[in-house]
């Protein structure tokens, strides 16, 4: 329903713009540079967790690269996203060709649609990333999905797993988790010993016997926690 409503509002906005154009009676001839052909993608994200708000969703088009690799150390941009929910460093990377971001965290059970327009012709891959904010450094998303061959109208659904950025110990202790379960610190100094992106093994929580954890049973999660639907609409 949310998606349909958003689509309707886009259509309404276009109608308003067209109506505004029709009032234009300027007779002067101006050289209009040829508009580049655009490829537009709608990215819908659903939060399927029980109680893990997702930090503002980052949708990033890059020149072919992956934003993370399992078994390798996280970039500083991924660390900022996974520890503090801050996607600005990741978006600001030199490899970014286009991006969009949610305005606010996406709560459990919520969904939103983001739109990304790119000039046709560029070799691009898309990544979607977000932190599970009631964790130390868990994130979920997809990276390096090739967009170059997508036809208009093509739609794909992704159900990505949860990853551990491997940059902060999973202590679950007060002061270390930025989400509403704690309100603690985001990005911490330094890296944990392993310093590699891996699959996440889940949170333990106080309800399961980790005495110093600020988390409870509602913060536990199983894969997947995110549903991503990408459609090429132009």
């Amino acid at each position: 329903m949310t998606i349909r409503l958003l689509r309707m509002s886009v259509a309404t906005a276009l109608l308003i713009m067209l109506a505004a154009c029709s009032d234009d009676n300027d007779d002067s001839v101006t050289e209009v540079p040829e508009e580049p052909e655009m490829r537009t993608f709608e990215v819908s994200v659903f939060n399927l967790s029980a109680n893990q708000p997702l930090s503002p969703i980052a949708v990033i088009a890059s020149d072919g690269g992956m934003l993370w690799h399992t078994g390798e150390a996280a970039s500083d941009g991924l660390e900022a996203l996974a520890e503090g929910g801050d996607n600005s460093v990741l978006i600001g990377a030199d490899s970014t060709l286009g991006s969009t971001s949610g305005d606010a965290p996406l709560g459990a059970g919520e969904s939103e649609m983001l739109t990304l327009s790119l000039e046709a012709g560029s070799e691009t891959s898309i990544s979607v990333a977000s932190m599970l904010v009631n964790t130390n450094d868990a994130f979920s998303g997809i990276t390096g999905v090739d967009l170059t061959t997508w036809a208009v109208g093509e739609t794909k659904t992704y159900l990505p797993a949860v990853y551990d950025a491997g940059t902060e110990e999973n202590t679950e202790m007060a002061g270390t988790i930025p989400g509403p379960a704690d309100g603690g610190e985001g990005v911490s100094e330094g890296r944990e010993a392993l310093d590699a992106v891996t699959m996440h093994s889940g949170v333990v929580t106080a309800d399961d016997g980790l005495p110093d954890s600020v988390l409870d049973s509602s913060h536990r999660f199983a894969n997947p926690v995110m549903k991503i639907i990408i459609s090429r609409v132009e």
């Binding site: 967790s49 029980a50 049973s217 997947p224």
Partner: peptide, 8 residues
């Protein structure tokens, strides 16, 4: 979460 979601 009052929507259908992945069971924790």
């Amino acid at each position: 979460n009052d929507k259908v979601h992945i069971h924790p």
